[in-house]
Computed example of a mutant assay.
Amino acid sequence: MGAAAARASCCIVCGTAAPERIERLLLSLATASPHVLVYLVDDARHPGLAALAGRYGVHYRRQPDWPGHARIHNRVLREAAGAGSAYHLLLRPDIGLPVDAVARMVAYMEQHLDVGLLAPRVQGPDGRLVPMCSLLPGPLELLLGRCFPLLHRSSGRLARYQLHASGYSRVMDVPVPTACCLLMRMETLLRAGMFDERFLLRFDTVDLARRTARIARTVFVPHVTVVRDPAHVGGGWRVRSACWWRRCVSAWRYFNKWGWLHDGERDRINARALRQLGPAQGRQDGVIPAGTDVAG
């Protein structure tokens, strides 16, 4: 990967993913990106992960409690920044990486110095697109998505929120990128203030993205594709129930910080993103009514 690769780091928070899935990911990183500084965070007390990390020469960090991904990532980011990392990759354990994915993402950011966050195209194991980028969230859309999902989908609001009109076939500036595979410029992160540790479950990325938008671009690139296979990551009904509650608490904190019905910055950022997609998506005088869009 050259000089840029030597200044890149990566964080994998293992969660409930099977150790076999983690090993496949580590093998992929070791093969394609041997100079990337990898941090493996064990937040579920998996037996054998420490030995696995030692086998692949990556940094193992055990997390005995669960303070949230934002706090975990901030700890790793500080360590990676101290080690001289210029780019940092957030990587979920359910992602499969092509051999050249990291190199191409770093190369794009090297060529575009105004980009602070970079998200690749995500597809499922069947090759179908998984639309993971979105507009900034608003409470109305969050309520519709949770309580009336069929109406949310049939009305076209979900498609607009997830930027379907783009076809995910071109480079575009996005208000909120995917967090499952996200390359970040370390300098931009430090200037933006890193993650707000009050937020969990997607809202930490939403909050970071809108603060980053004040100083740099957040870009989606279709020419780098990764594969997401959630079947590799477990979690029963207790986990899902806890996630639902944490999402509600995080949403409440997020809207208290940025505004519920009145959020002018959200309107401007979303309107700018929709204008890229053409007049059909940017109607209503190019402005999205406050409270229109939510985190999925």
Rank of each mutant, 00 (worst) to 15 (best):
Q162I: 04
L113Q: 11
L142H: 13
G84Y: 06
L97C: 05
R246L: 04
C181R: 11
L201C: 07
D65S: 13
L143A: 14
G124V: 04
L182N: 06
L77R: 14
A80L: 08
T225N: 01
G15W: 05
L208Y: 07
M194D: 11
L183F: 03
D196V: 08
W258H: 14
D173R: 15
G282K: 04
R170Q: 11
C10M: 09
G54E: 13
R202L: 07
M184D: 02
Q281K: 09
S250P: 01
S9T: 02
C181F: 08
H69G: 12
D42Y: 09
A213M: 04
P93Q: 09
P175H: 03
V174T: 00
R104S: 07
R240N: 07
L27K: 13
V58C: 13
R7V: 00
S134P: 01
D126G: 13
L90M: 14
G48A: 08
H164V: 06
R62L: 01
D94C: 12
P67M: 08
T16C: 02
A119Q: 12
V226G: 10
L182K: 11
M184F: 02
L274Y: 06
A273I: 07
P47D: 12
N270M: 05
V36H: 02
A242E: 12
G84R: 07
L182C: 09
P64F: 00
G84N: 05
C14I: 12
S155T: 13
E79C: 06
R71I: 05
A80R: 10
Y39K: 00
L208N: 06
L135T: 04
C11W: 00
A165F: 10
G57K: 07
A280K: 15
W244N: 14
R217S: 10
G138Q: 05
H59F: 02
